[in-house]
Design a protein around this nucleic acid. Structure first.
Lengths: 216, 216
DNA sequence: TAGATTGTTAATCGATTAACAATC
DNA sequence: TAGATTGTTAATCGATTAACAATC
């Protein structure tokens, strides 16, 4: 029973973190936790935690707190981890290889169906257990199997045309590792950008400015 | 000549994106751009762009706009891309391997000095051109070469103890790929988290909730 | 019941946007 | 000079925090 109509982005972005922390607490064998205790662990305010959770419903019990397992499972349902959205990965380079090998897509709500690459040599091989197909098969595959999410591990130059093709084929969402801002070019398309370069530059900024601060 | 004392995190996080877009514009051969044009490209408001830039100084010229090359270079200086902060990478698994192979640390302000791993077999080999050393050499290496940034590509279980060691050895900042929130345990330590799981769960949430929206 | 802690409303804080005078 | 666009102040909006009544 959702309490709110509109959920802000800030709240949505915190959900996976709650989910992760509650998983850790469950592993520790904790049965219940109060917003106060959780706030101390997560370095958030108790107020914010209660506000966030109450966007989706009242999961707690006054005078007691929250049941760890129940709350985790509820958040899992809200996120939809069990939906296992059909997903394809484009680009079998170093990053694509690493993701298929070490990243557990299932655990994060996605079912990886296969990998596509322009390299003809790779077609027919396997990568992390997933079949690699040539890019020329992409359209056909999409029309038949209807993936909803595409993981983009391709260079900036190709990202524009490839994402356009994928959108035409019905792909609704991108997990984007390319240096290209897809969201800017299409509406109604869900994009989650992982701009590693931007991330490291932010770190660089902070390192370089921390130094100055200390000199004072 | 910095205009402001305190720069908010929101502004800092946008700097790398400005830097990236200005680089693209420069490649296109554009000499000047107004906040209005840039806002259209980046899907921000012109007001925000001007506000952001004026945190660091007046880089524009009334009636004209901003010089693309100059502005990009100024932002580069602000971020400190040329500082090339000394960096080590911990964990030569799939992700560590991918990062050393395909990620251009230099381009984002870091000088990668070497890679550490617990696997004795790997010690003495090279990864993406960088020497791999055994974890037992870590303390010695840090005291001698004084790296400031550590890239953590290790599992959650080891992240706690490894980060503690590194902090003792003088490491000031972490680019953290492990499922562990370092920042929670230490003060004065700079942490840039790349929680890929959280990122994909956010995407899952959006995909699963977009569907409902469409059904209405 | 008394104590604890939630759910929720109200107050505060910060970030974004709008407006406009300064100026190239 | 007139037109364009910045730099900057003021207004608005949204997110976070505080407070407290409800209730287990």
């Amino acid at each position: 029973m959702p309490a709110k109509e509109y959920i802000s982005n800030s709240v949505i972005r915190r959900l996976p973190r709650y989910y992760r922390f509650l998983g850790d607490l469950q592993k520790e064998g904790l049965l219940k936790i109060s917003s106060g205790e959780l706030s101390a662990r997560m370095k958030l305010t108790a107020s914010q935690i209660r506000q966030d959770l109450n966007c989706f419903g009242g999961f707690g019990q006054q005078g007691y707190g929250y049941n760890v397992e129940e709350l985790r499972s509820e958040i899992g349902v809200i996120i939809g981890v069990e939906q296992k959205v059909k997903t394809i990965l484009i680009g079998a380079g170093n990053l694509g290889k690493a993701l298929t090998a070490y990243f557990d897509f299932e655990r994060y709500g996605c079912e990886l169906m296969g990998v596509f690459d322009i390299n003809l040599q790779l077609a027919g091989t396997k990568l992390g257990g997933f079949p690699v197909m040539h890019m020329s098969k992409l359209t056909e595959f999409c029309h038949e199997r209807k993936p909803e999410v595409a993981v983009l591990c391709i260079p900036q130059e190709s990202a524009g045309s490839v994402s356009e093709t994928l959108i035409t084929c019905g792909v609704k969402a991108f997990w984007n590792f390319s240096h290209y801002d897809i969201n800017l070019h299409f509406d109604d398309i869900i994009v989650e950008n992982v701009h590693l370069g931007d991330s490291l530059l932010t770190l660089s900024y902070n390192v370089n400015h921390k130094k100055c601060e200390n000199k004072e």
